[in-house]
Design a binder for these strands. Structure first.
Length: 891
RNA sequence: GCCGGAGUGGCGAAAUGGCAGACGCGCCGGAUUCAAAAUCCGGUAGGGGUAAUUCCCUGUGUGGGUUCGAGUCCCACCUCCGGUACCA
């Protein structure tokens, strides 16, 4: 019994915390400083917890327990990201309903997390699959659906910052007169085209085997990330979210976030903003007189939409227009047919067929060399009237820019490779700016640096930057170009064909023949949630027809009050949807009137610390920020960013230094560790392994080490030979000595500062050192032990509660004041400092702590060891840092 | 290719430009024990020297540099890990 019996201790305290609701957070406590600390909530897989989960979760738990002891009001919730494909795949194989399997998995996860003693406020638990939760996921979708982006709107938000561009209610969208003249149906279609959630026919990654479309990032080398099934490209009507409208703000507002620079960088890269120009090239035909076309453009100006008979390209290097020797259209480009001549038709058709079979990822695989086909058609270069051949090639993507490029092989690597392969002329139009630079040679490779224009008519000698601006302005005035901004970021493909996802709160109007008219109605907010329909058959439909189309007629159809027949949208939302806003719902998870009470939102948000794996660096974090900004624009949240500080925990590798995986047989099961050494040992070990953010291998013997440490702390206080928890005889009520106090306060300071910095491994080392020190002491004053228990409690809460109790306290230590250190007790009267001679350590002297440089020098020169090294040498210089070190520079 | 991050004992690691290797693992030795486990105490970068020591030399991926002084700052390079990749 008085041995350190973690089994009984841990279950007893977990029960105590639960019964006393120790960690329930009160909302809107004005007199306390709030702290919202969030873990990335897990997908409750059938495998249960792995050791990576407790890593981040322990880190946040330490921060929270520490903060409570500092008197802060702490929000520390947990929930489940429970929609998703694995449960559906399981259902398909075992014919068990995903809802049942999901509930089972959640039960396991909850039990495992409780077993680790995390101080979550479990009353705020939520699952994305709860109707009460997805009701509001659907509601937020309707807010996004009800919003258009007014790029010109200048406004000042509740944060006091003035921005340009705002998501506004669709009712405020100005309707052009010619549209309203066509009637209400035309107006509705016009609005639908401008919503932030819109339907679009687009080539998507369709996986027959999984029975769903996949996001680009879910496709690897032409196969599904999950299961490795083949993926093909299909044109399907899909829901898209207009995240590109927020591209600039998502990029710019990263600036002040306390996030790792690498993550910010990755997000900026993902957004990939570039600036340049759109330029129109007139398609050469027998009838076209280029000079006349230019004249006409000069009068009409640059058309907003690309007009017939012109190829519009996007370029970031308008300064290289004189170097254009050919153009390329994406194979899917609508002008291909028009440009292709009769004798090239067959080759073009075949090339397009081949390209259509490849996914974007196949096409962007750099390993294959450039392919393409000449269309037979030509277009006029607006800067010099040259006729340039137009090709099609799959290195140009229809989904980026205008789907067409002007090719400048002299100054673009891809164009150079292509031109070389097809013997197209390469022309130099940029030269090195510096007079003494080596001449640029573009025969073997493109030269992509900035310099000065050459072979570029009136622009010769103009530096690249000025030339870009100059040509763009000049061509704009002639009506053949305009400045343009492009993003690598695409609109977010938001629909899936899966069963186990949120239904869309959208109805499609049907005509008398039961066919969709293309007009839609939103589900009225008061009838949310659109319930997740029950089905019995989880086999994929085998077609792009979504799984939800297997639902009952009653779910699928209704007649609206005006007599219009309606059919439900049968696509479902992707797994990202639920995780886009869960951090908001934690603040107010039981609210049946609103997705969050504005008062609670103002109080708790933003999240002060968000810890999770780096695998979510881009997608989850970008999507959540996007939703948050839409809600912000619509006045539904008061902060522009959801997560103030972000930390990525490093992956834990197997004992062999490889990634943990079943196939490698190196998976460590946390439940077994808890079984053998207890939750406190697991928590402590995961924090002791190394810096939180670092990738580090598991060492089972390391768990043993921290377990021994906990045993040592236990025996500092408890007499482990007694039958009951009896305080050890060595524990006294005496006053501590000055040295003991110095060690204590040094430890308090170090641990406090380390916790602040999330440097948990060094904090634990400090407590170990202090414990080792106490073992050397002939007697142990209680005043030296109680603070240690408090310092240890965020790391190993169960043993700490037990020891606190044994020391005579009747209440939990969760809200005891965090120990304070007294700086005056830290100073020692004397210090030992190193003495160097010419930079080499030659001795040590002990001097008064406040010794001056002169005192130190005198003491050092009196030291025999130092004297030996100074003998016969001339001291050139003495560097003495009081209290630190002294160095004689001698010759 | 590009962009990050990291290279320190047998291992995980520590170190505001100021005594490299704290703390832990492992290993070695001792105490305790009939014996073992557990526990407690001591040692442990490498090489050399000494009867012994608070002795000497070398050492933080490689090569340069700045500095009285560099694991730490600067330049070049090597290796590993992560991310990303025809975005015009």
């Amino acid at each position: 019994m008085p041995r350190y019996d973690f089994r009984s201790i841990e279950s007893r305290w977990q029960q105590y915390w639960e019964e006393n609701q120790t960690f329930q957070a009160a909302d809107c406590v004005a007199e306390k400083e709030k702290l919202y600390v969030l873990d990335m909530f897990p997908y409750p897989s059938g495998e249960g917890l792995h050791v990576g989960h407790p890593e981040g979760y322990t880190a946040t738990d330490i921060v929270c327990r520490h903060a409570r002891m500092q008197g802060k009001n702490v929000l520390h919730p947990m929930g489940w990201d429970a929609f998703g494909l694995p449960a559906e795949e399981f259902a398909r194989q075992k014919n068990i309903h995903p809802a049942i399997k999901t509930e089972e998995n959640i039960t396991t996860f909850r039990r495992q997390l409780k077993m680790l003693g995390f101080s979550y406020d479990w009353s705020r638990e939520l699952s994305t699959t709860d109707p009460d939760y997805y009701r509001w996921t659907q509601w937020i979708f309707l807010q996004i659906h009800d919003t258009w982006y007014d790029a010109a709107c200048e406004w000042t938000g509740p944060d006091g910052v003035t921005r340009t561009g705002r998501g506004r209610p669709i009712a405020e969208l100005p309707i052009p007169a010619d549209v309203s003249a066509e009637g209400t149906a035309a107006v509705r279609r016009y609005q639908d085209r401008h919503r932030l959630a819109y339907l679009s026919e687009a080539p998507v990654n369709w996986c027959q085997e999984l029975g769903t479309v996949l996001a680009n990032e879910e496709v690897i080398d032409g196969r599904s990330e999950r299961g490795g099934h083949p993926v093909e490209r299909l044109n399907l009507k899909q829901w898209m979210l207009r995240i590109t409208a927020y591209g600039d703000r998502l990029g710019d507002e990263l600036e002040n976030l306390g996030w790792p620079e690498s993550i910010k960088y990755m997000q900026r890269n993902w957004i990939g903003r570039s600036t340049g120009a759109e330029v129109d090239f007139a398609v050469a035909t027998d009838q076209l007189d280029h000079a006349a076309w230019m004249q006409q453009r000069n009068e009409s100006g640059f058309p907003a939409e690309q007009d017939a008979g012109t190829i519009r390209v996007y370029t970031t290097r308008p300064d290289t227009l004189y170097g254009v020797t050919y153009m390329v259209l994406a194979p899917e480009h609508p002008l291909v047919d028009q440009l292709t001549t009769a004798d090239q038709q067959a080759a073009v058709d075949q090339y397009r067929r081949e390209a259509s079979l490849k996914s974007d990822l196949d096409r962007t695989d750099l390993s294959h060399s450039k392919t393409g086909v000449f269309t037979g058609g030509y277009a006029f270069n607006p800067v010099n009237g040259e006729k340039v051949p137009v090709w099609i090639a799959d290195y140009v993507l229809i989904s980026y820019g205008t789907g067409a490029i002007m090719a400048v092989p002299g100054h673009d690597e891809r164009d150079h490779e292509f031109a070389t392969a097809f013997q197209i002329p390469i022309r130099q139009v940029v030269a090195a700016a510096a007079a003494d630079a080596e001449p640029v040679d573009i025969s073997a490779a493109a030269w992509t640096e900035h310099g000065v224009a050459v072979n570029s008519g009136v622009w010769d000698g103009t530096p690249t930057a000025a030339c870009k601006a100059g040509i763009t302005t000049a061509l704009s005035e002639q009506g053949v170009a305009r400045e343009a901004v492009n993003y690598r970021l695409r609109d977010w493909l938001f629909s899936r064909q899966r069963y186990w996802g949120e239904p869309f709160p959208i109805w499609h109007e049907l005509d008398d023949d039961g066919q969709p008219t293309g007009l839609m109605r939103a589900e009225p907010i008061e009838s949310l949630p659109v319930p997740h329909p029950h089905v019995e058959d989880f086999q994929p439909t085998g077609t792009p027809e979504p799984m939800l189309s297997k639902a009952s007629e009653e779910w699928l159809y209704k007649t609206d009050t005006d007599g219009v027949r309606l059919k439900r949208e049968t696509n479902s939302m992707p797994q990202w949807a639920g995780s886009c806003w869960y951090y908001l719902r934690f603040c107010d998870n039981k609210n049946s009137q609103q997705f969050i009470d504005p008062e609670k939102e103002k109080y708790w948000l933003p999240v002060d610390l968000y810890i999770g794996g780096a695998e979510h660096a881009v997608l989850h974090l970008l999507y959540a920020r996007f939703w948050h900004k839409v809600l912000f624009d619509r006045g539904l949240v008061s902060h522009p960013e959801p997560f103030r500080r972000l930390v990525n925990q490093g992956m834990i590798l197997g004992e062999n230094g490889e990634k943990m995986s079943k196939s490698r047989g190196n998976v460590v099961n946390p439940e077994e560790v808890v079984e053998q050494r207890g939750a406190d040992s697991l928590r402590l070990y995961e924090m002791f392994m190394g810096p939180l953010e670092q990738v580090k291998p598991w060492q089972t013997s390391g768990v043993e080490g921290v377990y021994r440490f906990l045993g040592r702390v236990w025996r500092l206080i408890i007499d482990d030979r007694a039958a009951e928890n009896v305080i050890d005889a060595a524990v006294t009520e005496d006053a501590a000595t000055a040295e003991q106090l110095r060690m204590l306060h040094r430890t308090i300071k170090a641990v406090s500062e380390d916790v602040q910095r999330l440097s948990f491994n060094t904090a634990i080392s400090r407590m170990m050192e202090y414990t080792n020190f106490l073992y050397e002491q002939p007697s142990r004053s209680r005043s030296l032990l109680e603070p240690l228990v408090l310092l240890l409690s965020p790391f190993a809460p169960h043993i700490s509660e037990e020891l606190w109790n044994a020391l005579g306290h009747t209440h939990t230590l969760a809200y005891e004041a965090w120990p304070a250190w007294d700086e005056s007790l830290l100073v020692e009267s004397t210090v030992e400092i190193p003495v160097q001679v010419s930079g080499k350590l030659r001795g040590r002297i002990t001097v008064a702590a406040d010794a001056t440089a002169e005192d130190m020098q005198a003491a050092a020169q009196a030291d025999p060891a130092v004297q030996k090294h100074l003998e016969g040498r001339t001291i050139i210089k003495v560097i003495a840092v009081p209290g630190k070190m002294i160095n004689f520079v001698a010759r």
